[in-house]
Write a protein that binds this DNA or RNA. Structure first.
Lengths: 225, 225, 225, 225
DNA sequence: CATGAATGAGGGTTCATTCAT
DNA sequence: GATGAATGAACCCTCATTCAT
């Protein structure tokens, strides 16, 4: 996706600038709507959120929302993709997460991944409304599925390095479980009333993930595939 | 009345039998409605489930449903209580779960508790629609809150025995986390496509819970409060 | 209906007594239902009153209510007739209301009629729900129409004596107006918060009716038809 | 709108015109809905009127109605306020109604007030459905209460001039009774089948009100407070 | 593209009425 | 006759979505 601007423009000759401006304005609108959606999803949950509420929060008319998004689920999908992109940016900024090997490294790895992830969740209250639900309505499931898959790919990569030699299926499963653990714990973190309880829950999250993965690593050692 | 059993028992009044039969019918209806609700909740999720859908599935008119339940939330509440009662029965049938001490016992304890719990979830598809959601709409939250509290109490009891000497707050937290771990993992189990994957997920669930709790027990040993 | 039991019974030979007892029981049920209906109509108004509420208040099942009354309107009709009968009894007990002639008599006549009428309304809170409404839903209108007609006949009789020589149409109109005046004023009487205000409103009612009828009598004198 | 009448006014923003036009459309819709409501209220009565019926009569969807009115009661309230405003306009157009003193003036005063009032009722069939009911369901009562109070204030003002020196409480009562007399008589006027009967009823209404108020004025003279 | 009024199917709920027991 | 659970049409209201301006 780098800088390949290639042939994307269907703009007519001579008026590239207005088109771009219009596109830019459209992009701004989209941004505003998604921002509003994140807020309302975070406050009310996905099902209870109405498209009109999103539009109102964005200071935009309902019709405008439907100019950019075909329906409610597409708003969710776009927001999910937005989150995915930011997570990707996050990951990129972290640089190369160390080649995990022993327990010590595991702790660090977990800290490196979970820390920003928790921060991300706290910074983006709408995130968990889309991702942290364990049972999803059909529309939402379809909307976030691709993003889920991308996240799963990333995590599987890390887990694969942690458990070298394990069959892909098992790696995938461990990745799935790891994600689910985080997903399940996040509400306990974001829902904590005071900072002390929140810190404690964050520590529990680390404990859960680390002890699970360490056990997996140990098992890998025990039964040399 | 008296001894007038002569005729077929179409007695007008004074006999408890018709009342009992009618109550029995009402109870049966309630059962049918809750059964249908469990199904539909399980299939569609709580929000997407309509009271008319529940009634239709139960082979009953909407008005009939409202004869027994004041509104949708009350159906959920009643179902939650039903589940709580069955869980309690389950627990009672298990007898006294052993006094946990070392790691070996912990494995057994986990197996004793998680095994039936998983079986219960598989047998009752509606259960997770009420309990496994991490973010709940207000109505549902209120409906299941008492039952959640009861479950938490049970688990805290077990955890307390596992981590003697720990302050109540920490025990409560470990219990909360443990429940949440199960809650988060259950969809992976029930959602598994084939039996092999399901078995694997059940194993992961055990691993997750045991490694977490063992780590907690070790910590308890390390830092003698 | 004195003692004319003549040939009313379709009872089969030999079991007249049970039938009568059953009829008596039915009559008692009817009485209870109408009593309950009067109460609930008085408290909630006609439209807001549900047949189930009436049945419940009567300590009877909805089905039982429909055993005696084909629908809600018929309950109203029966109640209206009951009220009419009691009003008739009232009138009969009053004996012959004096031959009205001059103003003095008019005052007395009004007092004789209005006093018991007000008392009746205060004693029967359901009465005004059926009669004091100035605009009625179709069902209720049909239900009370015959009784209204009967009342109108009685009043027209009195007015006719008060305004001798007036054409029937005018007498009927004065009767209609008189009834409407009472009908309109009754809520002010029954709705009065304290006794003092109520007494004042009763006085106003007298003033209204008397001044209207006296004016009519005067007019009768002025323009000798 | 400034002077920019050039193009057809499809300006994107900054111009008040589209907004105004849209508001005008909204106002028109409100008007249509209230007009329809008045009709249906007039035909069916308040309780029997459904919001869908109002919407249909207005040639509008149910959702549209709820865009302007939060619920059925608010429609009634808005209609009541509309009526109040028109009555006020009516009163203003009448100019200063003469300082009433003797009987002659009273006749004129009554004619000045009652004439337009009757005309208003005949022109607005929904009016009596909201105001002429003597017993109201809770929702309607709340909806029209403020308007009732305003009307009462106006009438009390007139009555106060008619009965100088009377305590406020008595003036208020006479006003209440006067209003109630009109309220009770209006259905006889609007419900009249033919014009002749209607005229006669209007005459009766005058007679009723005038004879009542004259009697009150006489009483005031008799017992000089 | 923006607007926001308009749509209308559908949701939860009520209640007059029926009917199996 | 008595019962009360059962019925289901209809009500009020919501909200995802459309469309004239």
């Amino acid at each position: 996706m780098g800088g390949t601007t290639g042939t994307t423009g269907t703009a007519e000759a001579g008026d590239g600038a207005p088109v771009r401006r219009r596109q830019a304005r459209g992009q701004k609108r989209i941004e505003e709507i998604l921002h509003a959606a994140a807020e309302v999803f975070g406050e009310q949950g996905y099902d209870a959120t109405t498209t009109n509420a999103i539009a109102a929060r964005a200071g935009v008319s309902p019709g405008s929302l439907y100019q950019f998004f075909g329906n409610k689920d597409e708003v969710a999908r776009a927001l999910a993709e937005r989150y995915a992109a930011r997570l990707e940016t996050l990951r990129a900024e972290l640089g190369t997460v160390g080649d995990p090997g022993d327990g010590q490294d595991l702790e660090e790895l977990a800290a490196d991944v979970l820390g920003p992830l928790v921060a991300f969740n706290l910074a983006h209250p709408g995130f968990k409304a889309l991702f942290a639900r364990t049972d999803m309505p059909a529309g939402l499931r379809d909307a976030v599925a691709p993003v889920q898959a991308a996240i799963h790919g990333r995590v599987a990569e890390l887990v694969g390095r942690l458990l070298p030699g394990r069959p892909d299926g098992e790696v995938a499963r461990v990745a799935t479980v790891s994600i689910q653990l985080v997903r399940g714990m996040i509400p306990l973190v974001t829902g904590a009333d005071d900072g002390r309880e929140r810190e404690a829950m964050i520590a529990e999250l680390h404990t859960v993930v680390v002890s699970y993965l360490r056990r997996q690593a140990d098992l890998a050692g025990e039964r040399p595939v």
